[in-house]
Design a protein around this nucleic acid. Structure first.
Lengths: 228, 228
DNA sequence: AAAGTTTTTTCATAATATATTAATTGTAGT
DNA sequence: ACTACAATTAATATATTATGAAAAAACTTT
């Protein structure tokens, strides 16, 4: 996601703060919306679906904690990061804040540079969870999550030992392609390692048991392929 | 960060200078460590991870510039400010110093007041850039406050030793993700440090005892993951 | 500086999961 | 039906982790 597509909602009852913090974030390229109390915050949050909400704890009308709880109940905002603005040393509000569903807090007095770098950090977190691209391989009903070393087949979670996992990963990178035994040994075992001729078969068999017989096709004299 | 938590490493071959400068900084409330040559400086820097290093350019054994280059290569010291002590008018060493990665220089003869105010200025810079990254990590009932080095599990506060804390922090940054042993060593221990193969297991065990057995899943042959 | 405490690391051993082999049976393709 | 290769099964070997206890190192307190 590009920086200028990131929306931040800034909530504080002091106009000064809205202005200075808003200015700093805007000049970083973010889209900033402001609200001056909890009620307004919820309205605007529903409307704009911001990625990050910066929420003052002490506010008239509806305080930050209450607002946070309400915000957390809005389904569209489940991925939104919420951070509190709190006076230094207010331990109570910090703890209550986390119960209410906040992700972080920033202490007043606010130093623009600190704030901006904190915002960047929070949004980095957001970005990371955004692209699970190449760590995940999906074929039909089968999902291979390389990061979590986890397989999901027809919604059912399967845990495979390392070699099996890697063998499956390999075959699944190109469904339909026949992988020669040699190639499999090379990629899964590493070609220095010498293993007997039937080792691959055994692993294939285990995969067949766990994933499904028809998914693995034997090509006699050549190798194996994974089919959809 | 509180003043008394700020560590300064002072490096000079002249005992007089160590004493007078050290005294002035200590009485300002900083934690001062000293070294009398470059080699010792590197050892102590690795050990103490100072926030500021004041380094004499002219020293026996290993001169300041060489030491500075070496220091800059230590990963833990990437945020450390390094400043040179140099005789007035030694233009050459000043230039070379910046190439080597110094942030500032102080000219001899040293006037304590000037030095102290310079140090304060340098550390102010540090504070602003102070890594405000993911201060809070929250997973289910577990809250990790990296700023305060504190864990709260089901409302109960837990104090963990550094290594355990850092290991937990790492795993918790991506629940579900399997962290390879290698990666863990790299991020928690720093891969220059060599520890035996079973060290990670032992730390995981401690975490299991303290946080809960089911939260940590081992993936044989790969590593460990934190699960919700 | 010494004694005590906590944390970190190591090491040996047990427990377990995973990988490989080997022997046997099965089967597709000529 | 023969043959070459693959499938199967169970037994065996190997690799990897868990655990307990204790040494070493790092910190604290006196």
């Amino acid at each position: 996601m590009k920086k200028r597509d990131i929306k931040i909602l800034l909530v504080d009852d002091e106009a000064d703060i809205l202005e200075i913090v808003g200015y700093n974030l805007s000049s970083e390229g973010y889209q900033v919306t402001t609200a001056k109390n909890g009620i307004e915050a919820i309205e605007k949050a529903k409307k704009h679906k911001p990625h990050l909400i910066i929420l003052d704890v002490m506010m008239p009308e509806m305080d930050g904690i209450e607002a946070c709880e309400k915000l957390r109940e809005i389904p569209d905002l489940s991925n939104t990061v919420i951070t509190f603005l709190t006076a230094r040393g207010e331990d109570y509000s910090q703890v209550a804040g986390f119960d209410a569903g906040a992700d972080d807090y920033i202490t007043k007095p606010i130093k623009p540079k600190v704030l901006v770098s904190k915002v960047k950090a929070l949004l980095r977190r957001l970005k990371e969870s955004e692209n699970p691209s190449d760590t995940i391989i999906k074929i039909g009903e089968l999902i291979i999550n390389r990061e979590e070393y986890k397989i999901t087949n027809k919604g059912e979670e399967i845990i495979l030992p390392r070699k099996e996992f890697e063998l499956l990963s390999l075959l699944a990178t190109k469904p339909g392609k026949v992988f020669k035994r040699e190639e499999i040994l090379d990629k899964v075992w590493g070609n220095e390692v010498v293993v007997g001729g039937r080792t691959i078969d055994v692993h294939i068999r285990k995969l067949r048991e766990k994933i499904g017989d028809k998914s693995f096709k034997t090509v006699k004299g050549v190798g194996y392929k994974f089919v959809d």
